[in-house]
C-alpha cells in the first residue's frame, strides 16, 4: 500500500469531519473561556496599574510551562478529560489576551480621553464608549494570535485522548490509521488556522471602520 492512500481518505470522510469538528469545538471553548477569564483581569490591570505585574507574572508562568507538562500535571486530578484539555488550553490564551487588551486600552490618546471627560462622560463611559472601541483592533489581534496558537496546541491533547485533528496525526503515526492521516491532520489544522485568522481579521475590519485606511502596527 503506497503512502497516498486516497481510498482511505474517501471512505473515512465522516471520521475526518468529526475530528475537524472536535478540533474547532475545543478551540472555540478555549478562546471563549480565555476571553471570559482575561477580560476582567485586563480591566483590573488597566484600572489599577499596580496589579499588572502580578497578573503578567502568573499568566507568563502558565505560558512558559510546556503544554504536555501542564496536561500531565493535571491528569492525576482531572483525568484524561476535556476539562484537563481546556484548563491547559485556556491557560495559554491568557497572557496573549491580557497583554493585548491592556496595551490596547492604554493606547487611547490622552487628549481624546480628556475631551470625552470634558463633554461629560463618566469614567465608566470613557472606558466603554471610548477606550474599548479604540482598543478593538489590538484586542482582536490578540484573539487572532490566541486562536491560531490554540489550534496548534489542541493537537497535543491527542496524547490525553482528545486532540481533534491531532488524533489523526497520532493515529497515523501509531498505525491506527494509514500514514496519510498525518498529512490530512496537518493540512486541515493549517487550513483551520488560516481560515480562523482570516475570519477574525474580517470581523475586526467590519467592527472598526475608522481604522481601515490607516495601517496600524499592533503589539502582539
Amino acid at each position: 500500500m503506497s503512502f497516498w492512500n486516497w481510498e482511505w481518505v474517501g471512505t473515512h470522510l465522516d471520521l475526518i469531519g468529526e475530528k475537524l469538528g472536535e478540533h474547532l469545538w475545543l478551540t472555540l471553548l478555549a478562546v471563549g473561556f480565555g476571553l471570559v477569564v482575561s477580560f476582567p483581569l485586563a480591566i483590573l490591570a488597566h484600572r489599577r496599574a499596580r496589579t499588572y505585574p502580578a497578573i503578567t507574572w502568573v499568566t507568563g508562568l502558565l505560558y512558559t510551562i510546556p503544554s504536555l507538562a501542564l496536561f500531565a500535571l493535571l491528569v492525576p486530578f482531572t483525568g484524561l478529560s476535556t476539562l484537563t484539555a481546556e484548563i491547559g488550553l485556556v491557560s495559554y490564551t491568557l497572557l496573549i489576551l491580557i497583554r493585548n487588551a491592556v496595551t490596547g486600552l492604554g493606547g487611547t490618546p490622552e487628549d481624546v480621553k480628556e475631551a470625552a471627560r470634558a463633554m461629560g462622560y463618566s469614567e465608566r463611559g470613557v472606558l466603554w464608549r471610548v477606550e474599548l472601541p479604540l482598543a478593538l483592533p489590538v484586542i482582536v489581534a490578540g484573539i487572532r494570535i490566541a486562536t491560531v496558537t490554540t489550534i496548534g496546541l489542541v493537537t497535543v491533547t491527542a496524547l490525553i485522548g482528545k486532540g481533534g485533528l491531532g488524533a489523526l496525526m497520532l493515529g497515523g503515526f501509531r498505525r491506527l490509521y494509514p500514514q496519510i492521516a498525518i498529512l490530512v491532520g496537518v493540512a486541515l489544522s493549517v487550513a483551520l488556522a488560516v481560515a480562523a485568522d482570516r475570519v477574525l481579521l474580517w470581523a475586526q475590519r467590519a467592527l472598526t471602520p475608522w481604522a481601515r485606511r490607516t495601517r496600524s502596527v499592533t503589539a502582539t
Binding site: 491527542a158 500514514q179 496537518v186 489544522s189
Partner: peptide, 14 residues
Amino acid sequence: RAIPSFGLIFLAVL
C-alpha cells in the same frame, strides 16, 4: 504559527 509542531514531528518521521 499555523503549522502544529505536534504534526510536524510526525511528518518529519514520514
